[in-house]
Design a binder for these strands. Sequence first.
DNA 1: CGGCGTCTTTGCAACGATGTAAATCCTACC
DNA 2: GGTAGGATTTACATCGTTGCAAAGACGCCG
Lengths: 341, 341
Amino acid sequence: MSETTGKATVTMTDVARLAGVSVKTVSNVVNDYPHIRPATREKVQKAIDELGYRMNLAARNLRQGKTGIIGLAVPELSLPYFAELADSVMRAAESRGMVVLIEQTGASRQHELDVLTSERRQLTDGLIFSPLELGPDDADELKVPYPLVVLGERIFGGDWDHVTMNNVDGARAATQHLIDRGRRRIAVAGAHAGETMGSAALRVLGYQAALAANGIPFDPDLVLEGGLWHRSTGADCVYRLLDSGTSFDAVFGLNDALAMGALHALHARRVDVPGEVAVVGFDDTEDAAYSAPTLSSIAPGREQIADTAVDLLAQRIAGSTEPYRRVVADFTLAERESTAG
Amino acid sequence: MSETTGKATVTMTDVARLAGVSVKTVSNVVNDYPHIRPATREKVQKAIDELGYRMNLAARNLRQGKTGIIGLAVPELSLPYFAELADSVMRAAESRGMVVLIEQTGASRQHELDVLTSERRQLTDGLIFSPLELGPDDADELKVPYPLVVLGERIFGGDWDHVTMNNVDGARAATQHLIDRGRRRIAVAGAHAGETMGSAALRVLGYQAALAANGIPFDPDLVLEGGLWHRSTGADCVYRLLDSGTSFDAVFGLNDALAMGALHALHARRVDVPGEVAVVGFDDTEDAAYSAPTLSSIAPGREQIADTAVDLLAQRIAGSTEPYRRVVADFTLAERESTAG
DNA sequence: CGGCGTCTTTGCAACGATGTAAATCCTACC
DNA sequence: GGTAGGATTTACATCGTTGCAAAGACGCCG
């Protein structure tokens, strides 16, 4: 209950001496080894309390090769989606007694590769990795000697678990929602030309599927390229579209930041939303509920993704050798003003 | 240049054997000990490359008591300001060869106390702590046995460095800006009754100073209480104000989230911004530039704060015993549409 | 009361690096 | 050619904990 002012650091040896047992017994008590006489356990516990002993994690780490830290590699924390994802991952980790070391990869392919082999991987027992630049061809790079959970659908087929949102169906639902609101000229902001497996490609796929299902012709002029999924990109896309003279009555931002940028550009050009143009996003970040107008968006199951990812990773770290799994989170559509009918 | 497929982990011993030197010499090479014959260094380096040797951080950590990890404790990553702050801190840390372990304290006093004594402190060489609930009376709790840098002005007077934004002057500038735009009935959203040292109190102080300097009477009815500085709180404040019938022609959101919430509420109630009511925030988070209308805000020098904090912490970790410092970052006003004149 | 099988507890050797202090090697200088 | 003195290198103990395997204790049975 109280702690004496141990001058330096208190070690197991100190505890052992005070309790009159061996160091190993103290270790056993601390690690909940089952075969310990209650009296002994009590004695040791008392000594621990009295000395205010805290286990030295570095030593345990050296001995066991585990740190209790998991890595989380995301593009950028300043993107709301990833900040919120990190939040969720940290909570999920905490509830399992782990902590999270976050690394940012920027939008850099090299940085994404680095993160996989970085010295820091020694500090973590496993990694949750959300790649943005690596693609199917990089599968070999992901053959790493530690537990790995990959978020997103860019890379398949290796020895790792996979947790992803339902990009295609989510995008289809977003598009269908616009169609249900009577829109026919639906632009897409943030497409990545040439990409086949990333979120951009998959969401565009869902978009096209929805158009097709409703007999709406696909117009390439409505597909707006945009590399980084930042607000500024979304704004640029819409400015370009307006300047091009192409008619449109809706914008599907492939993520919320793009959609926010789109809202911004439309507002700047005095285009009424949703009167003239409806807007829908993807991610359902917190700001979607507070923009003017509020933004309809696909909620991709962020909590579920975080929970599942941490869970799978924890199992691998604990030594699970089950077949690698692929989990697809459930999405929902959050309807707000930007698509009000 | 190339790495052979060492079966298990490669240790210094392996390198030493291959290079034909002692383990300690390998250690010296790795640690850039100056007195090494070039030929030896080369031999060792070659062996290192050949074996693909990576130093075991756990072992070094045990021996040196340093991990290369610094802690960052913030209320919530899902609040844009803290996400952006974390981003900046991580970049600053990276440039100094350190990584960051982020912890969220929520809005919980207990959690803030826990973070200071958590077992995790063993995993970090020092902590950058941004308290929200602890106050001057808790100074004793901050007397911790590791390097600490405190952000914000809640707690002074202990053995730690202090980095803070200029809350009073920033708030004064924000308020003055509104006054310059001809506003006289300026509401404040997010005040904390009874608080004396927190950001809320200080910013309200700056607000009052600006009013006084311009001979504008202070009207308590315009001070809107709001605990958590979330968007929802900002919206609530404005709804309450509108419902109260109190007249006002401007809102100073004590942070951007509150201001965004205010914008949201005003938009929902069809109050024109900035025509009828001007709005200014504090933090200049990225979304301020993309709201509709875009939000004027005080940019508190986030990068500078992060850089300075990491720098001071790094110095302490390196053993500096200089007098503890207090650094106040420079702020600027970002003028945008919400206060257009 | 001896023997045997569990329970408990223990000693010792790692884990992989670095601090210390001493050994060895050189080089310049007398 | 010998030697002082700095430059290099090395042996060994040590950081604090846990795995291993064996020693001690204890309870039960015949």
